[in-house]
Nucleic acid binder design. Structure first.
Lengths: 145, 145
DNA sequence: TCTTCAGATAACCCCTTAGTTAAATAACCG
DNA sequence: CGGTTATTTAACTAAGGGGTTATCTGAAGA
């Protein structure tokens, strides 16, 4: 879970073109020209994006004659999700006010000296034990054959 | 869920310093100098990072005399997580081989013409209905008072 | 072999980013 | 008012990102 992985992954995801490429690859392998088609940019530009995705480990490529089919490698996305998961408690709306309250009280009580918490451990709260059963809002369509 | 939000959020998360800042803020509000202390860079540099985080909506700031305490605003992280959630099926190891198989079969069967899938909808699979009960590996410490 | 198709590289542009130091604000403290 | 503390802004450098066009490589196929 070295920071480099997260660096590269998040950086790769920061571009809409690259996210679109990943979305396309989620539907199955595709060649560079196939991937480039939907976009208004040149093919070399897409090649560059692919290189970024490849460096981040999000895409791997095979070989079929002169074609270099790309396929999705989603594993780094797990690292990213894992990192984000530490903050799940913080975006649950219902706790936002409680959180503000706690911070204020703590602030008033004593000025806490805690200059840094490790990057990988945001000291996630004991508030939400985690596995909430919330069903995904996005409707997963049928995939594969 | 405009792409701009994801752009800014993922871009903000692509820097280890900024991720560390967020981790620190998860433990409670902090002033700029408090946030800057752990790092070897100058304080203005940290201010810049904070501005990036602020622009992404990940940090908001109050005012306490000459201090401008920063607090975590985790909502954009939900958008990021939601996007990543669409790919959850793809990183479940057990399916990697099955996926490869399916793609190959489909490829052999007929060359599918599906140039682009929308960015927000990677056509997530019907394979994994989703709410897996996997407990988080990171140990959430106690938080708040 | 000559051609064509599929991608990769190169060389270049422009703009952003991450960092620096130094100076400007802004609010408190005496 | 004058000084100290906290933070922002300015000006600058070095590096990298995203895009372009033009050129090179490499495999297929006539």
């Amino acid at each position: 879970m070295s920071t480099d992985v997260l660096d590269a992954t998040f950086a790769a995801l920061a571009d809409p073109t690259r996210r679109a490429i990943l979305a396309r690859l989620a539907a199955g392998e595709a060649t560079v020209t196939e991937l480039a088609a939907p976009f208004e940019m040149s093919q070399p530009a897409v090649s560059k994006h692919l290189k970024v995705l490849e460096r981040a480990g999000l895409v791997s490529r095979g070989r079929d004659a002169q074609r270099r089919p790309c396929r999705l490698e989603a594993r780094p996305l797990k690292a990213a999700t894992d990192w984000l998961e530490n903050y799940r408690d913080y975006w649950e709306e219902s706790y936002q006010r409680l959180d503000a309250l706690l911070t204020e009280l703590k602030d008033r009580d004593a000025r806490l000296p805690d200059p840094h918490a490790d990057e990988t451990a945001p000291a996630a709260g004991s508030r939400n034990p985690k596995p909430d059963g919330t069903p995904r809002t996005d409707g997963p369509g049928s995939r594969g054959a």
